[in-house]
Simulated assay, not measured.
Amino acid sequence: MSRTPRRYLSAAALISATLLVSGCLSNDPEAVETEDDAAAAAAEPAGDNAEPGDDVVIGFSGPAAGHGWIGAITEGAQNQGDEFDDVELRVSEGTDDVNQQISQIEQFINDDVDAIVVLPFDGAALTEVAIEAMNAGIPVVNVDREFSSPFAARTTILGDNYGMGVSAGTYICEQLGDQDDAVVAEIAGIDSLPLTQDRSQGFEDALSDCGMEVENRVAADFTVAGGESATANLLQAAPEIDAIWNHDDEQGVGVLAAIENAGRDEFFMIGGAGSANMMREIESGDSVVEATVVYPASQAADGVRLARLLAQERAMSDLVESDVPREIQLYAPVVMG
């Protein structure tokens, strides 16, 4: 097979790890964390970037924190803002209402903040108001869910969604690669989001590389209830399964509930996001969950760091290419017991 080798980490090592952000941010594959650790993982500023600069006001807007990963994202942003004496971070109330989030960005524009960090509930829907902010001379840092125009953000920080799918597919190939008739199932997140589409494409491509394909696929909505409902439908439709990839560990709680209710255990499952719950499932040794693909919850904290530099018209002095880059993509390794 021609797949690029992926690095695997133990669950125990993952739980004890923290992401050390050096200078501005780090993408060291060895320094990974669970979503539950991320909110507390804001590192002490280092290097020239830690030196106080002009006082700046940064606005932050994100979805409602009904999901553990979103909660960690928001808390991480708040903690990071607290690290800097020269930053006033204004955090809008989390919302899954697109119109309300648009109003939050408009308020930041009216307040003439110095920079905006936004994790949009729907990137396409918030693109126009983000362009409005950029046209007003306010740099926008786009986190996780990408806008539909390159003019909507000065910098975009993304998890490696395609890489998540590749990592999950590669793991399954390595476990089942000699079984030509293996049945692989997929429990996706919200199908309308580009990040879900990227995860599914990466998964499909990795499986194709070892002669497999997804036999059964359902989409949930990144919630516990959605995961349970979608999985119940999947298990009814597929009487025999060898492996399942579930895109999101939060909805994975519902996925596991449906699996238990159905009395099924003939397959193994790989999760997505690296939540503490899934780490415990992996470590237990008696769960269908064998592994999960990490999806960093440090993105908003990194966004606040970058927004500060942009607002102060400073650069990333600890890099050879010192200007703040247009796009940053974080690493998504597999962890297993």
Rank of each mutant, 00 (worst) to 15 (best):
M1N: 08
T4C: 00
T4V: 13
T4S: 12
A11Y: 02
A12E: 15
A12P: 00
L14Y: 04
G23Y: 05
G23I: 02
C24L: 13
S26C: 08
S26A: 13
A31K: 11
V32E: 13
E33T: 10
D37L: 13
A43D: 06
G47E: 09
P52T: 12
G59N: 04
A65Q: 11
G66F: 11
W69C: 03
I70M: 08
G76Y: 03
N79P: 00
E83C: 09
F84Q: 07
D85S: 15
R90E: 14
E93W: 00
I109F: 04
I109Q: 03
N110H: 01
D112C: 01
D114I: 12
F121P: 00
D122E: 13
G123S: 07
A125P: 09
L126F: 07
V129W: 03
I131P: 03
E132T: 12
S149V: 01
R154G: 00
M164S: 11
A168I: 08
G169A: 05
T170H: 04
L176E: 09
Q179C: 01
E186T: 00
I187G: 03
G189A: 09
L193K: 07
P194L: 03
L195V: 14
D198V: 00
E204D: 13
D209G: 14
C210R: 02
E213N: 12
E215G: 15
A219N: 14
G227T: 10
P239T: 12
E240D: 15
A243P: 10
A243G: 11
D248I: 06
D249C: 04
D249V: 01
G252H: 06
V255H: 08
A257T: 13
G274M: 06
A276H: 01
M278A: 15
M279T: 11
E281W: 12
S287K: 06
V288I: 15
E290I: 02
Y295R: 06
A301K: 03
L310C: 04
S317A: 14
D318I: 03
D323S: 14
V324E: 02
R326H: 05
I328H: 04
L330V: 04
A332F: 02
A332H: 06
A332D: 11
V334S: 04
M336D: 07
